[in-house]
Lab assay of single mutants.
Amino acid sequence: MATGGRRGAAAAPLLVAVAALLLGAAGHLYPGEVCPGMDIRNNLTRLHELENCSVIEGHLQILLMFKTRPEDFRDLSFPKLIMITDYLLLFRVYGLESLKDLFPNLTVIRGSRLFFNYALVIFEMVHLKELGLYNLMNITRGSVRIEKNNELCYLATIDWSRILDSVEDNYIVLNKDDNEECGDICPGTAKGKTNCPATVINGQFVERCWTHSHCQKVCPTICKSHGCTAEGLCCHSECLGNCSQPDDPTKCVACRNFYLDGRCVETCPPPYYHFQDWRCVNFSFCQDLHHKCKNSRRQGCHQYVIHNNKCIPECPSGYTMNSSNLLCTPCLGPCPKVCHLLEGEKTIDSVTSAQELRGCTVINGSLIINIRGGNNLAAELEANLGLIEEISGYLKIRRSYALVSLSFFRKLRLIRGETLEIGNYSFYALDNQNLRQLWDWSKHNLTITQGKLFFHYNPKLCLSEIHKMEEVSGTKGRQERNDIALKTNGDQASCENELLKFSYIRTSFDKI
């Protein structure tokens, strides 16, 4: 039985969820670079991206490699990797027998973001014989899940209580170790020597080791999670996991709180800001991140802002960003909400898709409305799209047979046209069989910064309504002859009103 693990408890099935942008060198404390989270699957090609990484700022997932063999891993080693800020997950990587050479110096898994409450997941690794993470000293947050690894031993010899604050939620089941077939031998045991430290858990006094050649490092209890030197002297209180010299914040392997210019500090002093819960960055760093993602459509890219001495992905609820200094300031009234469309555009074809934009005031991208039916549609669209004030790209209304009016965009005031449909149009209306009105132009103002209007096959939309939009939106004169079809717009509506004058002759039985 794995020490510190839980057996036999019912657990939810383990679901495996399925960018080499360097964020800056980590400095003297770390020998390499800070790398983003990685999802490495199918083959070993991307694994080489770990070569210079000291910190993975995010998670590391290595999974679904069915053609790899043990010899493929023999020359692979990433000794610079010290810390993973989120979680480490391995799933069905064939041929991998140990992690001792792959990650010989991995010391800390912070667990800032977890995989279903777990910071370390080893699942269905069919050839893994031992973990071998002999320098792993601290899992700051989260638990361990090690399950269905039929060859995995050296679990009962690990004292997880020396690595985690609590072992109650560890789930370590259905491994070879369960069948008591392992016969784990710690260093020196074969020669009758006791080389590794022994600890007591559940009444068992057991030597602690990761492999037959690597003991588990056990520091004096007084050192807590700070770690200790090879001689057993406690590291500085700002260290986490390990250090090369005692009581020196510049000799830590990793930091308990924050890293700044080669030393570990309790908090980031001005003019620095907390970033990702582990390091200090200056304003320029946060500003660069903001600008890199301002026009990016890459998933996970955030326009970072500053709030409460932190550089964070977005302002919290009730705050909006001051564009001059990136500071989050309290909103006066309802907060603006910028919604970034991942692929640059979004099609609204149902109430469900409209709900995804609920509360958005600025759309960074283009909207395509293609709704053919739905219950209580006008009210639903207004509830979900009615706060949109600005669209950076274009607005396209296409084959939306259920629409009679666009009044559900009740606050839309600006279409920038930074991206144009077919390279020309910022407003595009095609084949809307029941569209009769755009907006009530006596109450609604709309500016279209650039781009043209396109109207074709809107049989109940009168040309007068379209011409009014040209005047109000500032697009009059931009359109070419064929942009607004004269014969297919309003051709099934009563669009022309003329005053009919009647004269009559009164007659009676005795007068003409």
Rank of each mutant, 00 (worst) to 15 (best):
L29V: 05
L81C: 00
N150K: 08
C196K: 09
I185W: 15
G183V: 10
Y304D: 03
C264A: 00
R298W: 13
T140D: 13
N295D: 11
C264K: 00
C209A: 12
Y304T: 14
S324F: 05
G111W: 01
Y30R: 01
N150G: 12
A198S: 06
R113A: 03
R256G: 04
V34K: 15
N42D: 10
C53D: 00
L89K: 01
T45M: 08
L60D: 01
C239S: 00
I84Q: 00
R162T: 06
T45S: 05
A156I: 10
Y273W: 14
S324I: 01
G241M: 02
P270S: 11
H302W: 12
F275P: 01
F205Q: 14
N117K: 11
V173M: 04
T157Q: 13
T85L: 07
Q276C: 04
T107L: 05
F115S: 09
S54N: 06
L90P: 00
N322M: 03
N149M: 02
D169P: 12
S161W: 04
N175L: 10
S237P: 12
E207S: 06
C53H: 00
F283K: 09
S317L: 10
N175I: 14
F258T: 03
S284R: 13
V206H: 04
L326N: 13
N202A: 09
S161D: 04
L76F: 09
K191R: 09
N138I: 14
C53F: 00
E207Q: 13
H214M: 14
C311F: 04
S225V: 06
Q204V: 10
I306R: 02
N202K: 04
C311L: 04
I163G: 01
G232P: 07
H59D: 02
F66S: 08
I201F: 11
K217P: 13
R74W: 04
R263K: 09
V218Y: 06
Y118H: 08
S317T: 12
F285T: 06
S244W: 10
L50T: 02
V108Y: 02
I158T: 12
D101K: 06
N322S: 14
C315P: 04
L136H: 01
S324G: 09
L152T: 03
N149H: 01
Q204H: 08
N325R: 11
N179K: 15
V121H: 05
L99I: 12
P269I: 08
I306G: 12
R279E: 02
K148Q: 08
T45L: 13
T68Q: 09
V144A: 05
I109P: 00
S143C: 04
A119V: 03
D159L: 14
C153W: 01
D184K: 14
N179D: 04
T157F: 05
R208V: 00
L96C: 10
T320P: 03
H236T: 03
R69S: 05
T267R: 04
S112D: 15
T189W: 07
C228Q: 03
C301S: 06
P187H: 04
D288H: 07
C268I: 01
S284V: 04
C255L: 00
P70H: 06
K176W: 14
D177I: 15
D261K: 11
T140Q: 08
T107A: 08
K224I: 06
E49Q: 03
M65S: 12
V200N: 14
I82K: 05
V173E: 11
D261I: 04
N242L: 11
K67N: 07
P270Y: 10
W278M: 00
E49F: 10
I122L: 10
F205S: 13
M83L: 10
P36E: 14
L240S: 06
D159T: 11
F78K: 03
D248N: 08
V144G: 02
